[in-house]
Each structure stands twice: as structure tokens, then as C-alpha cells.
Simulated assay, not measured.
Amino acid sequence: MALTRCNYCGYAYDEWNGDTRNGVPSGIPMAKLAGTVCSRCGLQGVRHERQPSPKYEGDEAEYYEQFAGKAGIDFYRNWLETSAKPVRALELGVGTGRLAAELAPRTERYCGVDWSPRMLKTAETKRKRLFKSEAEERLQLVETDALDFCSEAAFTHALCPDGFLQHYTLMEEHVALLRNLHRSLEDGGHVAVDVHLPPAGAGWQTRQRKQLQPNKWVSRRLEGETSLSRQLFRCTIDYETYVDGAMASRYRVEREFALITPKEAALLLASAGFEATRAVWNFGLVEPWPTAVPFGINRTTDGLGEAETIKEAIAAGKDVLPYRPYIWGNGGYPLASAIPGEAPDAPATVTLIARKL
């Protein structure tokens, strides 16, 4: 995160917020504060350490699956089922086992890595229920930072779901993590990396509400800001629990994520020894913007010749899209139909599939 702390005097500084007590405006890098603000350390030397993102705890861990839902499960299940040989899968950021519980029964071996004990406790409960006496053999759960994970076994598939790569905000961390994955995969193995694109604009907010029991609700509100110059986006996330219409509890956490485009993700994968072969928007629910697709992938259909009709192309064995009349029905008086447009500033999840070279 952009939060640093001195292990000598304890002075903490957050670049996003500055330091109002000492008259430092927001957005000032810590390096510019050297020799000012703190008389004990002068903000110089190696004692100032970047603070890691907070672990998923409290209500954030408890209600994680309520808001993540089933996103990506069908996509990843279909991806693993296309493998021509038995699957040995590695998932970084396994969390509560939301994906692992659905995918592990379809694999020969599944390993999930996470550093949040609260999330892994939920995953452990699912593991015992699913596999009983074979739990540790079929679904291995490892509590560690993904950057420190090392496995002697070789996996056929690796997953970085739910924007896991973006929890690390420095480029050297991205490269180190992907190289770690490269070492963990067998030759020709595949990796899938989810990249979250936040809403456009300097400031944005979203809100969702879920019913837990007839008289109990939980609301999650995100207030975020995106910085192009820092290539980061930051969220303040509030979980509010209501019982019989009255607030019973509130949990707040701040998170910071790397802002990575699909093209940048493809280049990062290439730097770590992978070749991106496919890019999928929102797990296949929408088509990608052509300007955002990395070069050389997603060429799934053939083009028509200069004087060739669709019927002639299909008869010649070409893979072209057939003509679909009347498929678009937007418009109408006095209201447009329920089919929404794909706004260019809407948030999206891009999944890049890559092969180990």
C-alpha cells in the first residue's frame, strides 16, 4: 500500500491523504518529506517500510461470498474440463474456497494458497465436508504470502482469480509472483489471471444489499478513487449489518489495488515466460472492446473475402458468424427496451489465459 511506517519512531505516512497536522497536502510522495515532519528519523534511511494490505478479517471475510456470489465458477469449471489430461490446479488467493469447493472435485489435486487465517477457516470447513477422509490429499490449503509460496510438485493449471494479482501494487511484485507461477507449472501448463477494471472517473461509489435472514440484511458500500498517475485505485469498503431495520454492526476497511490494463497484463505475463492466448470479458458474458484486446489473441473467426457472401464462406468451410436478423431490439416509444448498452466507463473483469513457454 501507499502507507509507510518507520520501525524506529513509528511515524506513519499515507501518500493518498497527506499529513494535515504538519501541513502536507495529499498526493505528496514520502521521498519529498525527507528532512521534514519528523525530527527523530527525518524520514530517511531503510527503516521506513511499506505496509501490506490488510488481511481479510471480520465482516469482510464473513460476508465475502455473499457479494462474490457465483461469478466465474462456470467459466473456470469449463476451462479445466477442456484439459486433455488429469488436472492438478493451483489457486492463489483461495480465500473461503469459493472456487475451490466447485473445482477441486473435478481435479486430481488442488492446492489453494492464502494468507488470511479467517478465510482459510471457512475453506477448511468446506474441504472436510467435500472430501472427508481424503480432504488433505485432494485439496491442500497453504497459509502463506503468495510471493513466498514454493512447491516441489508441478501443476497443469494455475488460477489468479478475483483480481488477486492487483493486491500487489509494485511492478517487481507482479513479475515475482508470475515467475513463481511459472516455476510451479509444468511445461505447456496454463494460467488464468483475472484483472479488475474499476469504474472510470476520479471518484466513484457502488452499493449492494443482501438478505441473510428474514429480519437480517447486510449492505456493502464502496467509495473509490482512481489515480492514473499512480496507476492505483483505492476503495473504502463499509459493511453494515441491519436487524429488524436497525444497524447492528459496521465494519470498515481500506484497500489499494494496482491499476492494470489487459495489454499490460499480457506484457507482464510475457516477461515471466508466458504467452497470452485468450482474453475473456466478464467471464464471457460480454464481448471485449477491440482497442483493449492484446495483440495476437481472440482471433476466433475468419474474415469474408472482398466479394464473398456469408453463405459462400460457410460453404467453403470458413469459421464466420452467421447472419442473425432482428437480434437487436433496443429502442421503442416512449421507453427503450430492457437491454442495456455497454458503457465504455463501466467496470469489468478481464480474464487472460496464458500458456507457459
Rank of each mutant, 00 (worst) to 15 (best):
R252K: 11
L321E: 13
F233V: 01
A146V: 04
I314P: 03
D114F: 01
R109I: 00
S271N: 11
G189R: 09
A292E: 15
H174R: 04
I310P: 04
K356Y: 02
E172C: 11
A338Q: 12
P54W: 00
Q231E: 15
E108Q: 14
T169D: 02
D345V: 08
E306D: 14
L352E: 07
C41L: 02
T351Q: 08
Y323R: 11
Y76L: 15
T351H: 08
T107D: 02
R299Q: 15
T206W: 08
S53T: 01
P344F: 06
L268H: 06
S26N: 11
P288D: 04
E308D: 02
C235V: 09
P290C: 03
K356A: 00
N330R: 15
T107Q: 00
I73C: 08
L92R: 10
A153G: 00
E264T: 14
G329Q: 05
E136Q: 10
D238I: 07
G97V: 03
E62K: 12
H157N: 10
L147P: 07
L321T: 13
T96L: 10
G112V: 01
G303L: 12
R255Y: 04
R221P: 01
K121P: 02
D187W: 09
R230D: 13
Y76A: 11
T277I: 14
T241P: 01
A258E: 00
A154W: 04
K126N: 07
A202M: 11
E136H: 08
K216V: 14
L33W: 10
N180D: 05
W281C: 13
L259W: 00
R40F: 07
F75A: 04
L285N: 10
G284L: 05
W16L: 08
D14Q: 09
F149D: 09
E102H: 15
S83Y: 10
L147D: 09
M247I: 13
C235H: 06
D14T: 05
A153P: 00
W289V: 12
S151K: 07
W204T: 01
T156P: 06
E287N: 10
R88K: 13
R183A: 14
V193P: 05
L267H: 13
L120V: 02
D345F: 10
L165F: 08
F155R: 00
G245E: 07
Q51S: 05
G18Q: 09
L222G: 11
M119R: 02
P214L: 07
A338H: 12
L165H: 04
T236A: 03
T107Y: 00
L181G: 06
S337W: 05
L268W: 06
G245D: 06
F149T: 09
C41G: 03
T125W: 08
Q140I: 10
G331C: 03
L232D: 01
A158I: 00
R5H: 06
I310M: 07
E143Y: 03
R355H: 01
P161H: 06
T241W: 01
G189N: 10
I297D: 04
T351E: 09
E240V: 06
